[in-house]
Design a protein around this nucleic acid. Structure first.
Length: 456
RNA sequence: GGCGACGUAGCCAAGCGGUCCAAGGCGGCGGUUUGCAAAACCGCUAUUCCCCGGUUCGAAUCCGGGCGUCGCCUCCA
């Protein structure tokens, strides 16, 4: 079965065939780090994570590059407002991302290049673009001349005439045309700078991605991912730069994920309308956040309200209950091939994670049925764990009990033993009171045929 | 104004020409189990897929026209 993906460049589904038979290169457009990572970013990155895991599951070796753009206008602006060094601001947000990503079980990238680590290569590429006649210098800045690149607008479906109609900002007087974009920005007092053939300055916003992606993955490379909001102008400009610098196609497949909405509006740094992922992780489990995201197709806009995370939390609870209620699985032993087949069909179909997720719950249901008939559901459980692994759920998290020490366990056991006596003597009101009070401090107990169980 | 996406049960969300008299999750209702709970199981919860036309033997699925929502066109995952 071929893997079918929606390629933004063709605006249609395409069968995935990597440039090299067994190796796949993915460049995930990461954050510009002027602000804290939020749910919208995480949605994109979790899809990237699942896509990568699925390719690995299918036997590909994946090089996954995710950048941090750590120098640009907004970072400088924001650091001035906050009165901190721009590097400090960037590092803070990068660390916040990496910590949250780890909690969310997002596989670490092969490399996390930063724009400031590639200034020399950026300068070289800009020099090439000038030499080849695609760029020009003006007052210490360098601009890409859009009219020189014949395919401009191909990715975003825009043409220069339409853009002309809709141009909304005052054109920079240094530019030959308002569509031209900066490759290098001349230094201004109080701003960070690097030395270049055009004087002091810093890179423009799009060039770092063209340079870093091809540095690690070559040109062309297989997959470039990111949010839909990057299609224009960011990715359009990346194509123009890379293809003009090297006369070679830039990227084979462009994969874009839809935005996270908040009260009907896009969650975004610029509006301040967002939920920082770190804050969310204080109230919800990483598994619930992942489930919530994967229950929607990556190309559909998704509304966020806290209730949805609550719902996902309950759904995760259902899976957890099954995992805890069923016996541990052996390493060897059969899995449900038919379910794995359907799982693959779902993900082969442009990464249809909602359909893939539904199989998880089918397995839980079948497994529970077996449990209630006293049959060991080892096949269901084994298959479930396998599928969850591919979807990036942290299995040990699901199986792990929360904060508890041996001492507390022993104390609770004593209490429950006494309660058991009360129940035997049919002193239910006292037994119920113990249950209720234990629940009040976060210890849930269940009376089953095999005895009373508890969890924190 | 230009370009694009979408509108499926109380809510979230798959399905994209027949196998759909429409997956899965949350919620609700009834039952089994339990001293009562919890968990779990069983059954029910969209005669219909925004509206109106059309194509077809057959449409949630294709086409046309409405209405509505969102994204991009300026920094954004």
């Amino acid at each position: 079965m071929p893997l079918r993906l929606f390629n933004t460049y063709r605006k249609d589904y395409e069968e995935f065939t990597p440039l090299n038979t067994s190796k796949v290169g993915i460049y995930m457009c990461g954050m510009t780090v002027q602000d804290r990572p939020h749910l919208g970013h995480i949605r994109t990155f979790i899809f990237g994570d699942v896509f990568r895991r699925y390719l690995e599951f299918r036997g590909y070796e994946v090089a996954f590059i995710q950048n941090f753009t750590d120098i640009d206008d907004k970072i400088i602006e924001k650091s001035k407002i906050e009165g901190v060094d721009w590097r400090h601001l960037g590092d803070k947000n990068i660390n916040e991302y990496l910590t949250s990503a780890m909690q969310l079980n997002i596989k670490p990238a092969t490399y996390y290049p930063k724009a400031t680590q590639f200034i020399q290569e950026i300068i070289e590429t800009i020099t090439t673009l000038i030499e080849r006649g695609f760029a020009y210098e003006a007052n210490g800045s360098v601009y890409f001349e859009v009219s020189k690149f014949k395919n401009y607008g191909k990715l975003s479906g825009k043409n220069l005439d339409d853009l002309k109609e809709s141009f909304r900002i005052d054109p920079d007087p240094n530019k030959k045309s308002p569509f031209d974009f900066a490759l290098w920005k001349a230094w201004k007092e109080g701003e960070p700078y690097w030395f270049s053939p055009w004087g002091r300055g810093r890179p423009g916003w799009h060039i770092e991605c063209s340079v870093m992606s091809t540095h690690f993955l070559g040109q062309p490379f297989d997959i470039h991912m990111g949010g839909q909001d990057l299609i224009f102008p960011h990715h359009e400009d990346e194509i123009a730069q890379a293809e003009s610098a090297r006369d070679k196609p830039f990227v084979k497949y462009w994969i874009h994920s839809a935005p996270m909405l908040l009260k009907g509006e896009k969650m975004s740094k610029s509006t301040g309308l967002y939920f920082a992922i770190k804050d969310l992780l204080e109230n919800y489990s990483p598994e619930a956040i992942r489930l919530f995201i994967l229950q929607k197709h990556y190309r559909s806009p998704a509304e966020y309200i806290p209730d949805y995370l609550e719902e996902a939390e309950k759904a995760i609870e259902r899976i957890k209950n099954f995992l805890k209620a069923s016996p541990a699985v052996e390493h060897i032993g059969p899995v449900k091939e038919a379910v794995i087949q359907r799982f693959q069909e779902a993900l082969d179909d442009d990464l249809n994670t909602p359909r893939a997720v539904s199989l998880l719950f089918d397995l839980v249901k079948e497994g529970n049925q077996k449990l209630s008939e006293n049959i060991n559901p080892h096949e269901e459980k084994k298959t479930l764990l396998l599928l969850m692994e591919v979807l990036g759920f942290n299995i040990s998290n699901l199986l792990m009990e929360k904060v508890e020490t041996d001492l507390i366990r022993d104390v609770v056991k004593i209490i429950l033993d006494v309660r058991q006596e009360l129940r035997k003597n049919r002193e239910f009101s006292l037994a119920d009171r113990i249950r209720k009070e234990l629940e009040g401090i976060g210890i849930k107990i269940k009376d089953t045929k095999e005895g009373t169980t508890f969890e924190f």
